[in-house]
């Protein structure tokens, strides 16, 4: 039995099909990532799984319990950190934590071990109001509140959105330590670079899961050869590459452009010579491995062509 099982779940708001026939199977103890842009349906799926929203069709179970019939029982087993900061701004750090513990019929003392590692970092500010905390501390407090009743499944809806690169790294390290205690974690994020930090992921776009698997397996299925191309000036180079009819796709990835080509059509050396002949300087063309963003763009394109 999986920790979270979703079968053909659909949800519509008026004219907007937020989720269409979504199925998922998440194993106990894994960090599972739901990766996609705003409006893809991530939050809708979370709300259905944490029993705050009813699906139109399909069924879902958390720890074997049905999200519709057994909703009260599910709520005792799960921790939920919604996307927006959801704590009481006027209560202090300690009061917020106390409140959430009491709601679940427990106390901070009873479950202190479960939250110690994270709580110890904000405990010096226990008498500060939640509304006066920095972004990083709010995030830690929200995580403590979601963990204080020892849930077996943790739902984290975009916990790192708008958070800087350093704090994001810290947050993921906390998740790994939580996983060690056997908790299943479903986490959503719009940051594609966080995909590789998950055990398995689903890529979601416009209410559809466009791919599911380990990050490595998804990358291995990328259908083209990929070249990393750099040269000066960078933006005119990008425009030149897009005008070449034998190159499939071309996008900027920081200091390099990623160029997809059909295997057997052009070599890195040939492309390098062609770019140099156009007068660009410092040209480097090398074969590279795709990353999750390359895969997402490729899969999203296939999805558009099919629909």
């Amino acid at each position: 039995m999986g920790a979270i099982e979703v079968e053909n779940v659909s949800k519509r708001y008026g004219n907007c099909q937020a989720l269409e026939q979504v199925s998922l199977d998440i194993q106990a103890g894994e960090i599972y990532g739901l990766i996609g842009p705003d409006g893809a349906g991530k939050t809708t799926l979370f709300r259905i799984l944490v029993t705050l929203l009813l699906p139109d069709n399909g069924s879902a179970r958390v720890e074997g319990l049905d999200v519709v019939k057994d909703f009260m029982a599910i709520r005792r087993h799960i921790g939920y950190m919604p996307g927006r900061f959801s704590l009481y701004q006027d209560l202090t750090v300690a009061e917020n934590l106390d409140f959430f513990a009491t709601m679940f019929g427990t106390t901070i003392t009873e479950n202190y071990e479960n939250i110690r590692e994270i709580y110890s970092q904000i405990e010096p500010f226990r008498d500060r109001r939640a509304g006066k905390l920095s972004g990083g501390m709010k995030q830690k407090l929200a995580l403590c509140c979601a963990l204080v009743h020892r849930p077996s499944v943790l739902f984290l809806d975009e916990p790192t959105t708008g958070v800087d690169a350093v704090s994001r790294k810290d947050f993921w390290n906390m998740l790994y330590r939580i996983r060690e205690s056997g908790v299943t974690i479903l986490v959503s994020t719009p940051y594609m670079d966080e995909a590789s930090l998950c055990d398995r992921i689903s890529l979601i776009q416009k209410g559809h899961l466009i791919e599911t698997g380990t990050p490595a397996a998804i990358v291995a299925q990328y259908p083209h050869r990929l070249f990393g191309v750099s040269g000066k000036p960078a933006y005119p180079l990008l425009k030149f590459l897009r005008r070449c009819p034998d190159l499939l796709r071309c996008f900027s990835f920081g200091s390099e452009h990623h160029v997809a080509v059909e295997p057997g059509t052009i070599s890195p050396e040939q492309l390098q010579a062609r770019i140099q002949a156009e007068g660009f300087s410092d040209v480097v063309v090398r074969e590279i491995e795709p990353n999750i963003e390359d895969c997402f763009m490729e899969l999203a394109k296939e999805e558009r062509q099919e629909s």
Partner: peptide, 13 residues
């Protein structure tokens, strides 16, 4: 913030 990878790149274009 929050847009899909292709849209993000088209915006930078």
């Amino acid at each position: 913030g929050g847009v899909d990878p292709e849209t993000r790149r088209l915006f930078w274009d």
